[in-house]
Simulated scan of single mutants.
Amino acid sequence: MLIYHPAFDFYNCIFRLLQLLSNLKDDEIEIERLRIWDFYLTFPNEARHISFPSDLLALKKIFKDKPNSYEDLIDSRRIFERMKPFQITAIKTLISYGFIEPEALENNFVKRTDKEIPEELKKRINDVKDERQNIIKLVTGFVDLPLYGDRGLKYRTKLIDFKYDYK
Rank of each mutant, 00 (worst) to 15 (best):
K61M: 09
P85C: 02
L105Q: 07
S96P: 01
D55F: 02
I79C: 09
F80S: 04
R77G: 14
L57Q: 15
L59Y: 04
I88S: 10
S96I: 00
E81R: 14
N45D: 15
D65K: 11
D75S: 08
E81V: 01
T93R: 09
G98D: 03
K92H: 15
R78N: 13
I95H: 02
I95N: 05
Y97G: 06
D65Q: 13
Y97E: 14
F63P: 06
E46D: 07
E106Y: 13
S51R: 08
I50H: 11
K60R: 13
I74W: 13
L59T: 00
I95A: 06
K92R: 15
S51A: 10
R78A: 12
S54K: 14
I79S: 09
R82I: 02
A90F: 03
N68S: 04
K66L: 01
H49V: 04
F80K: 07
F63I: 03
L57G: 06
K64V: 01
F52N: 00
K64E: 08
L56C: 05
N108R: 13
L105V: 04
K60C: 02
R77L: 08
K111H: 02
E81C: 05
I91K: 08
K66A: 05
L57A: 10
F63V: 06
E106V: 15
A90D: 09
F86V: 03
L41R: 10
T93P: 00
